[in-house]
Amino acid sequence: MLNGEIALVTGASRGIGRALLLALAAQGATVVGTATTDAGAAGITQALSDAGYIGGGLVLNVGEQASVDALLAQMTAQFGAPTILVNNAGITRDNLLMRMKNDEWDAVIDTNLTSVYRLSKACLRGMTKARKGRIINITSVIGATGNAGQTNYAAAKAGMIGFTKALAREVGSRAITVNCVAPGFIDTDMTRALPEAQREGLLGSIPLGRLGQPEEIAGAVVFLASAAAAYITGETLHVNGGMHMG
């Protein structure tokens, strides 16, 4: 389904990023996944080669412009310019606002939101030239609903949705689509860090009665990356078991 496409997925060493990297590769795309460490990048390369997929892992610090530039140069030389960009890298630094430190705010905005600006800008040159492209931003149900203790994360994730709509308007004439996928609570290291009581409480608010699996987010991303979704742009696809219905 994605033969000939070249996908870049940030934050692909584990969790949702890993699952959607493998799912894009399984559809025939050449994939590059990024990690913050050499070991993480090597792990991605290994996982891809074990599965017989084409691609590799590269190191990226999404907070540094120089690192983004270096990644694009290396990826383009090694695999080609990306035709699919999945902005997935993200962190949490939860705290009640009255206790939140500047560095907790800044880290989340920079890693989760400013990174989307940096990566999208870097990839657009090739996409506008090619007159095709897919940018898929992994936001969160929290960007739509808010969550106590996550003002920074909610602001960044809601910011991604606004960014997505604006960019979709800018580059639509070049057949480039820009969309969001908004996961609910997915069974990953990020949600495993939640206190047990909060996890139990959450389940009660999810009509499907369970956490989602990373592969269920990957399915939505593969769809938006595919030709089947060519007429969808500026949209946010919620994948959350019904806990929030946009």
Binding site: R125, T128, K129, E170, V171, S173, R174
Partner: peptide, 11 residues
């Protein structure tokens, strides 16, 4: 040309 065309032209 629209604004995006002019950016692409310069590129």
């Amino acid at each position: 040309a629209d604004s995006l065309d002019t950016v692409e032209l310069v590129m």
